[in-house]
């Protein structure tokens, strides 16, 4: 599985497909941090929400980089379960690298500032920790959405893009404050709202958000696993 993960990362990077989500991410970061410096927790909270569709797109691009026939050859070589898992692992590794770069990028430009004296804002370290959590939860949901939108599942580019765009829009719309079914979407917006609260909510709220994101991603990835059993 590790050999296939490495092969897929190499194929994705060498093919130049990584460039498009990288440029999109730079645009997103420019929009977030272009207006001046901001406290870590709310800035990273918004960054996680806005990078969610980019991360899902990157996942889809990585899973689609390999020709269909090569995916089937890999399936024969390592088995169906390992083939599907290797793609997700490759996407997760690149996703973590992407999120780390997105969190570090504003630092040289003073996009993140320390706590203002005399306010109830969290300390910089706490804000960064909340930001890391927000990005990891967004990445988890993005992996699941990108996998469900991959060509191995959807069959065609049109269907794949429909799933990707619809999923990204619904994740935001269903996550709005007055949504009728917020539990249908991953807790991207809820995490971002929690990150903007001053003072920050207690640990219990973030634990609940983590469990929610894990449950949503587990359900979505279980759907991916079921679909991939028949779709090589």
């Amino acid at each position: 599985m590790i050999a296939l993960t490495r092969m897929r990362i190499a194929a994705f990077l060498r093919s130049g497909r990584a460039l498009a989500p990288l440029i999109a991410g730079l645009v997103v970061l420019g929009l977030i941090y272009g207006g001046g410096s901001s406290a870590a927790a709310p800035a990273y909270g918004y960054s996680a929400v806005m990078l969610f569709p980019v991360l899902a797109w990157q996942t889809k691009l990585l899973l689609d980089a390999e020709p269909d026939v090569q995916r089937r050859l890999a399936r024969l070589a390592v088995g169906a379960g390992h083939e599907a898992s290797a793609g997700l692992l490759a996407a997760a590794i690149l996703g973590v690298a992407y999120c780390a770069a997105a969190m570090l990028a504003p630092l040289p430009f003073h996009g993140i500032r320390d706590r203002l004296p005399g306010t109830a804002e969290p300390a910089l370290a706490t804000g960064v920790a909340v930001g890391v959590l927000a990005h990891l939860l967004a990445l988890l949901a993005a992996l699941a959405l990108g996998a469900l939108a991959s060509r191995a599942v959807t069959g065609t580019i049109r269907n794949g893009l429909t799933v990707l765009v619809l999923g990204a829009v619904l994740a935001v719309v269903l996550g709005l404050g007055d949504s009728v079914a917020p539990w249908l979407a991953p807790p991207l917006m809820a995490t971002a709202r929690a990150a903007t609260e001053v003072p920050l909510p207690d640990l219990g709220r973030f634990t609940l958000l983590t469990a929610w994101a894990a449950g949503w991603a587990t359900a979505a990835l279980a759907g991916y696993a079921v679909l991939r059993r028949r779709r090589a």
């Binding site: 093919s15 020709p67 026939v69 090569q70």
Partner: peptide, 8 residues
């Protein structure tokens, strides 16, 4: 058909 569209 061998899948030749790969960057290797």
């Amino acid at each position: 058909r061998f899948p030749a569209d790969q960057p290797f």
